[in-house]
Design a protein around this nucleic acid. Structure first.
Length: 243
DNA sequence: GATTGTTTCGGGTTTACGTCA
DNA sequence: TATGACGTAAACCCGAAACAA
């Protein structure tokens, strides 16, 4: 429940736009100061908006897609920056009832939940084909595709955004896998070289025993690293691989 | 050149929905 | 059959950048 102070925290706005399902351009943008502020403080705030939306050209909706289309139309409005009421508490309901017969609408989500559209196979196929040609669309291409698929341009936009994100995620996963394998290979190589080093140490000890008194510094340390590596890989390394 | 409004995008999150144990 | 966990994808939110007026 809201307290008295919150109840008084109301906003009044004017909304323009169309019923075509596209955004009105006020949803995003850091410099759209006035409207942006309203959006950021939408929670726990009652907002009244005068809706001047126009239905320019009612879309022809296929029978089996009817519910989803209507839902999306509602959804698209709800997703705009004017959704200022989130929960149907007593006060909100009262406000709704009060203003229900006027042109003022508060753009509340009527059912408290959004419907999720599942794209058909044909739609997905065409979208994928378009994505393979180009990963971003300009306005014209977006509208053309939306017309073809009987979707809203906003849906096309969202699909492409999500698709780009999925592509990037897959790419990152692949790169991660590659680095893992690379790391494993390097670890294997490291283990192999350590083993070879042990063998060299062992050989040098035997050699010193036969040829000379035990030196104070181990045999392998007396050679520069590069030389040691050379001996290791070319001479002894081969024999170790035969093991 | 600075300011403002608009559009688009990336990154992250939320949520509806399907699947499976 | 019911249900909860989980994965997926559509939709959403926000900040940043680019661009035009």
């Amino acid at each position: 429940m809201m307290n008295q102070e919150e109840r008084c925290n109301t906003t009044l706005g004017l909304r323009t736009g169309t019923e075509t399902g596209t955004r009105t351009g006020t949803e995003t943008g850091t410099r759209g100061v006035g409207i942006k502020k309203e959006k950021q403080s939408k929670k726990n705030k009652i907002g009244f908006w005068l809706d001047l939306s126009l239905q320019l050209h009612p879309k022809i909706i296929e029978a089996n897609d009817h519910d989803h289309k209507n839902d999306y139309e509602k959804e698209d409005h709800d997703s705009s920056s004017f959704k200022t009421v989130d929960d149907d508490d007593e006060y909100t309901i009262m406000i709704k009832e009060t203003i229900s017969n006027t042109n003022v609408c508060n753009n509340n989500n009527n059912h408290g939940s959004r419907k999720k559209l599942k794209l058909t196979t044909e739609q997905t196929t065409l979208l994928e084909a378009s994505f393979n040609i180009r990963t971003t669309l300009n306005t014209g291409q977006k509208q053309e595709l939306a017309k073809k698929l009987n979707l809203f341009p906003r849906q096309i936009e969202v699909w492409f955004q999500n698709r780009r994100a999925r592509t990037k995620l897959k790419q990152i996963e692949q790169e991660c896998e590659m680095l893992k394998k690379c790391c494993e290979t390097l670890n294997d190589e490291n283990r192999r070289l350590r083993k070879e080093l042990q063998k060299v140490r062992y050989c040098s000890l035997k050699f010193d025993h036969r040829q000379a008194p035990q030196p104070s510094v181990p045999f392998y340390i007396r050679y520069p690293i590069a030389t040691t590596m050379h001996i290791t890989s070319d001479k002894i390394g081969n024999s170790s691989e035969e093991d």
